[in-house]
Write a protein that binds this DNA or RNA. Structure first.
Lengths: 313, 313
DNA sequence: CTGAAAGCGCTTACAG
DNA sequence: CTGAAAGCGCTTACAG
């Protein structure tokens, strides 16, 4: 692989000069620049970003850690991150954790070792030390869609889970539901717990308490759309009709939720925008050599479709 | 950030020795090792992988490039890659191209600059120069699920598109269909064209030719499940019944295809396994300093569900 | 405008 | 068993 000295030799200049033209510094004579450019073209020189990173103490890479790449919400978050990072010249390391504390921990070590300039966390296990570990190493971290940050250094772009749950419960309660269940997937995700709590509070305000899905619930509100869709599948295979026998509501409004065969009542998350904004914030922090230390909330509009109806009388 | 010399100083040894214990070399006296380990713990030392990469001329990172992270097939491919790479200590750079030749080209430069040890391509635009560009720079590349490689240096783990299309057409033809359409998404993906051709050939063998979806087709075979599901949505919104009025078949058997509300007839791809195997092959090549230069085919079993039936009489 | 020099944080023969 | 030295490929003051 050809290096700076190869092209310097070929162009009859010093490495400093080659470096100057490669980086587009202005202080190079035109004739020299031409010679160097020809030498670069002739040799097919491609600067080694690793060497550059070592010297400038910045990797120009960020990481995104998500529990499940196959969940469209996280996939779209990753898409937003990809696009924005690409536009800024940052590479993105993706880490799919399946909410395994061990994988999270290994990822922490790997990301610190590779000196990523920042990490965007889309979801982690309950009580994960990952954010702290990173923060303490001075790597900026931003929580996207995740719950209550205890640490001031954290960046947060959050859902408004509490309002969303209030809206959902209000809708269901207005329809006449009194026995409602919260359903979540196997993972113990931070955001899952917060939604569950928001759901319980909204019920409590109406003098109700959550019931289990199998304990005669007439409505199920799911942690997210993927789980809502799985719940519909489960219920219908058992012969329950939706929404006639039981109402189901999701969270995220993934593209599929609008499908003619599903028509899922849900709440919208703009995952792509969340990813874009996350990159914006984390890169700004990284470049300034500080933490993000900023939080903002995304509103989650209610999307009424066809999986909710009055409870059976 | 503490470095090797910091811990060496603290432990009263040379950097060589610290390096030896960090890398787990055997030739270190127990007492020395203890001192060094304490110094590492005290200082919170984390080796700088960038410096290591520069020295050993290997990044221990691979890339996966996919057209669309929100397509469950690619998401699962990425999951397979993530798991296997993680187990081997490799980081994975994800590139989401949307089949844009420009994005592909930029990605090529970025990946070369970052000296990734190999790249797994899950899908690219028709006629993309990306594989060649990488190969010519001596970075091993493996095509996962992609069409006919012209270059011997390439690794390939492929679908058996031709057989799959033959099976699908056989099924539809047996049901009585004679007017069948192939439907694909906007992207000009390599694999899309191959499936289209396989479909046309299978029809030709029966003396038939493809018709357009809107030209009275009684069956639509889609490039993939995502598109099949979108086609069902489109058709049903127009008031067509599936499968009574028109049959639809997909490709991939994404998890959703089995959903009670969809029950999509399709062909199975094991994307997770494909990703795992891709990493296995590319890492072996990278470590041996050679190209993958190996191809293998995955069989795609037919999955009969409920979106196909006899054509309306 | 150009080049010599130091240094980023490691690894790796090689002496001792 | 341990350490001095060279070097991976860049960038960046600093002289000239």
């Amino acid at each position: 692989m050809t290096t700076l000295v190869d092209v310097a030799r070929r162009a009859g200049v010093s490495k400093s000069t080659v470096s100057n033209v490669v980086r587009g510094a202005e202080l190079v004579a035109d004739a020299t620049r031409k010679r160097v450019e020809r030498a670069i073209a002739d040799t097919g020189y491609h600067p080694n970003a690793i060497a550059r990173s070592l010297k400038v103490q910045a990797s120009t890479a960020i990481a995104i850690v998500v529990p499940d790449l196959t969940n469209p919400f996280y996939a779209e978050l990753a898409v937003g991150v990809e696009r924005a990072a690409n536009a800024l010249g940052y590479a993105v390391l993706t880490v799919h954790t399946e909410c395994s504390p061990q994988t999270e921990c290994e990822a922490g070590r790997a990301l610190i070792g590779r000196r990523v300039d920042g990490v965007i966390i889309g979801g982690i296990s309950l009580g994960s030390p990952l954010p702290q570990v990173l923060l303490d190493r001075d790597v900026p971290v931003l929580l996207a869609s995740l719950g209550e940050p205890e640490d001031e250094r954290l960046g947060v772009i959050d859902h408004d889970d509490l309002n969303a749950m209030e809206t959902i419960v209000d809708h269901l309660h207005g329809l006449g539901h009194r026995r409602m269940a919260f359903v979540a997937q196997r993972f113990h995700e931070q955001s899952g717990e917060r939604r569950r709590n928001g759901f319980a509070s909204a019920l409590a305000r109406r003098g109700l308490a959550p019931v289990a899905l199998d304990a005669g619930a007439t409505a199920a509100v799911a942690h997210n759309d993927v789980h809502a869709i799985a719940t519909i599948d489960l219920l219908e295979r058992r012969g329950r009709r939706i929404p006639e026998d039981i109402s189901v509501v999701g969270y995220d409004d993934i593209p599929l939720a609008a499908h003619h065969r599903l028509r899922l009542t849900t709440v919208r998350s703009d995952a792509v925008e969340m990813g874009r904004r996350a990159v914006e914030l984390i890169v700004a922090a990284a470049r300034a050599g500080r933490h993000v230390a900023h939080r903002e909330i995304q509103h989650n509009p209610f999307v009424l479709r066809a999986t909710t109806a009055r409870p059976p009388s």
